[in-house]
Design a protein around this nucleic acid. Sequence first.
RNA 1: GCGGAUGUGGUGAAAUUGGUAUACACGCCAGACUUAGGAUCUGGUGCCUUACAGCGUGGAGGUUCGAGUCCUCUCAUCCGCACCA
Length: 813
Amino acid sequence: MSYNPNEIEAKWQKIWDEEKAFEPDDALSRKKKYILSMFPFPSGRLHMGHVRNYAIGDAFARYYRKQDFNVLHPIGWDAFGMPAENAAIKHGRHPKEWTYSNIDYMRKELGALGLSFSKTREFATCDPLYTKWEQEFIIRMFEEGLLYRESTTVNWCESCHTVLANEQVEEGCCWRCDNPVELKEMPGYYLDIIKYADNLLGDLKQLEGKWPNQVLTMQENWIGKSQGLEFEFELSEDSKAKLGGNFEKYTVFTTRPDTIYGVTYSALAAEHPITKYLLDNDLLDADVAEKIVAIGNMTEIERAKEGKEGYDLGLTVIHPLTREEIPVWTANFVLASYGGGAVMAVPAHDERDFEFATKYDLPIKRVIAGGDDLPYTAEGSLENSEIFTGMPNKEAQKEIIALFEAKELGQGTTNYKLRNWGISRQRYWGAPIPFVHCDDCGLVAEKVENLPIALPDDVEITGEGNPLDKHPTWKHCSCPKCGKEAIRETDTLDTFVQSSWYQFRYATNPNKWNITGIDKEEANYWLSVDQYIGGIEHAILHLLYARFFTKVLRDLGYHDIDEPFENLLTQGMVLMDGAKMSKSKGNTVDPDALVEKYGADTARLFTLFAAPPAKELEWNDSAVEGAFRFLKKLYDRKAKVAGKTLPVIEQSKLSKESKIARVKIYEALQKSTDVYEKTFAFNTLIAACMEALNALDKQDNPEVWTEGMYIMLNLLEPIVPHVATELSEILFARENLGVQLEVKEEVFVQESILYMVMIGGKKRTEIEVNASASQEEILIMAKEAGAKWLEGTTVIKEIVVPNKLVNLAVKPN
RNA sequence: GCGGAUGUGGUGAAAUUGGUAUACACGCCAGACUUAGGAUCUGGUGCCUUACAGCGUGGAGGUUCGAGUCCUCUCAUCCGCACCA
């Protein structure tokens, strides 16, 4: 009978289902592996990126199950989010109905791929039982002062009608819809991720070698720690008067305190309170005011493109050390969001300050020696710096901070580029933020016993405004504290909040899901995730948030884990004609059609064979055919197998071809451990199996065939589970899938070895040498064989690399 | 500009970590079987050569008996961040 993947795959999927083959052991006593592929958003259909992601994860899970680990390999649905609301607007479907019906369809698609997921631990993040615990965490964070509400300038996406976190803005545009982001002043909820910045940065060290370097450096840069001096500029008396006595001083931050004597002006952001005061009180020329307002309305990206622009504010401050009066400007390159929105400017030693000073003809004072050209930003000794003159600048940085601290003028401090995580979204399809606004009590957390605060089903979704806010009754409630009439918060949580703790939810036994969010003992047993697999696009977003949440939940006592994901594999994209597959480009391959035509095993085999997992995968229809051909051949060779168990083979009686076949088989077995535990190069393991099958085909010993198939099916089971299990069932009653296979060293012992003979570094000839030959004997043979090339030369060095080659270094006579 | 990667046949890619470069697969060429084949099987396939030889891992140097692998410089491509004071 020929290979019929659809029949075989349906059969085994049913059996695995009935056997509950992939549920983890609740005993928590065995050694464990937690294998996790990033969960999908239920968009409607799987795409090839999903197939790749889950094929990789499934290979790990099945491999470790065979190694007798207790394996947790769960799947769920990242189910809240904009597209559900867009579907509601476009097709009039309720987000909940849309989401759950998509989940039902995609669950079937995953099933058809034969993925070994736990069925009992599946959930969707929009399940009320998930929301309930998430809201509890949020309230706990509020109680601990990690969550606060504040009105500030936010990133606003007009197309999504919602606020975005800094991490969700890519080159000034919305990460989801690519619409340019606007700045808007509005209230929102924030998680104090900056409080954990140092912890998040420091723990990256634990991940070195286990996470891709690229991801580690991206996170490091994103956190953006810098150390320096923070001090205050006192306004001159005239300036204080001009500002109506409302301001005395303002704070600036510098990483270059060594250049403090080179300060020739100070610059404020357009959003700085002093700038605003001047604008609000008409204290600037009308045309200047207009231009400053225009700057304030630009995004940071737009400002960067504009080039340096600024205006004299007509104010002066006092230099803290020299007591000189220094002019104050506003400048478009000063960021409101960093370092207090004000800087000291040292044009001689900073490129931006230099460019600005040159443009506006501001003084430039050199204070670091070195080089001829300004700005000079490298190391050097101080000059024009009073008592610090002559001191190396590195040393001066410390000394000057010490001086500021001694005189109580400022202090050494640390700044981060990382901004606090804005988690409120003005959308319906999300987890409600569990707070209430009370006229008397202010912002009050909902009582934990009232959780979950569920979404109302009867909403009208038009795309205009927040449906929760417009709902006639939902937001009206009583204050959890005083009982008076109050208004429920209508913002919902960023969907990245859900994906920040789902790894803990899977670890909690489903029979406890209604009594606890995270079971501490189970979390401590299962976490960290031993192997996490997902796309590089989450290098900052999800992976930073999930690390943050893990640390916060640890500190709140929910578990004792420091890092959620021990090992990270970032898979490459699936491409077609060199471009990312996308519906709009029309270059997609439909997984359903692929499975229908060739079967899931071919889809999985091709995906793992065509490229190493971290690299981009270029789709190739004929290579898919090639993968299918290999499986057909494998299936066909079942006729060659004679025994039902692993035979004992007498090596010495085998033909040369049979010996080679055994070597190839055992090489593949050796490779397997390496691939799953170190290199993740599934493509090379598959290649090794192909080589083994080719070598088996060149001989006809039934015992060698039996041994070969016995081992090879075991090795291939994680990759092509259906056909491997089917053949194992037919040939070996599946006995070969459960055993620990051992490498037989005698297979690699050779009676004679082929040595390459190199003369003068060039490959010249080969010699066949008895395995027991001594080094001297080998050299004599090599010289005989290479006599032709040794004529007229003297051998000056003889190298014998055991089992490989002889190299004779020569010089002409 | 800063940071991270990657450069190997016509293509996707290997190379036990310093030891016969191009395994495995796709494609291509030839042949077999066929009424036919976009099916299957067999053989061939880095470049230049009739052959011997020579040349070949982006480029230029270096270390070494020996370099795809180590060092220095350089070029190209991709990705991320981007006025962070």
